[in-house]
């Protein structure tokens, strides 16, 4: 019984309450029992991964700010894909570029891959150590990618302050 087990148990209990939707004492008791059971059954999964997934309160706040900023980019990306798909000539010239990142740890890399995918015209394909293979829909997007906007955003989220 550590801090992480308590955290995961409370998260599962909230999930149960959202799914069932009443606060009857028996329902609550059932939820506590099931959350404890699932936490016990999945303690093998939690053992190694927990240290990698650390993100402070400030980090969570900054993540939401970044997501709000990203909404404009997502809209641009969708309209761009729409223009290319609905054009009868299908104007694409794909290319695969390698992108070297300086980020360490699992969570920053996952977030970087997600940000790259949601930006216009780029799609993160594979990780090999520090190198991401990125598929671009046109050459101009590769140049945009090299300005490292996505990496700057992730660095801003994970700025150390301990």
């Amino acid at each position: 019984m550590e801090k992480k087990h308590l955290f995961v148990g409370i998260l599962l209990l909230i999930f149960w309450l959202v799914l069932t939707g009443n606060l009857h004492p028996f329902n609550l008791l059932e939820g506590v029992f099931l959350a404890a059971l699932v936490t016990f059954l999945s303690h093998v999964l939690l053992s190694g991964l927990w240290e990698e997934l650390r993100l402070g309160i400030r980090g969570i706040w900054r993540f939401w700010v970044c997501l709000a900023r990203l909404t404009v980019d997502i809209f641009k990306a969708n309209t761009d894909v729409g223009e290319r798909v609905l054009d009868p000539k299908l104007p694409i010239s794909p290319a695969v570029v390698k992108f070297k990142t300086s980020l360490k740890g699992v969570l920053p890399k996952v977030m970087l891959a997600g940000f790259i995918t949601l930006r216009p015209g780029t799609l993160a394909v594979d990780f090999e150590g520090d190198i991401i293979h990125v598929h671009c829909l046109a050459d101009s997007f590769a140049k945009e990618l090299m300005e490292r906007e996505a990496e700057k955003a992730v660095l801003w989220i994970f700025e150390e302050e301990r």
Partner: peptide, 23 residues
């Protein structure tokens, strides 16, 4: 439409992932 028209798996993923999430 993108899944039907685009030529290979990676560009189809462009259409499917982005439009799936946003739509």
């Amino acid at each position: 439409i993108g899944i039907i028209r685009l030529p290979d798996i990676y560009s189809r993923l462009h259409a499917s992932t982005k439009c799936d999430i946003f739509g």
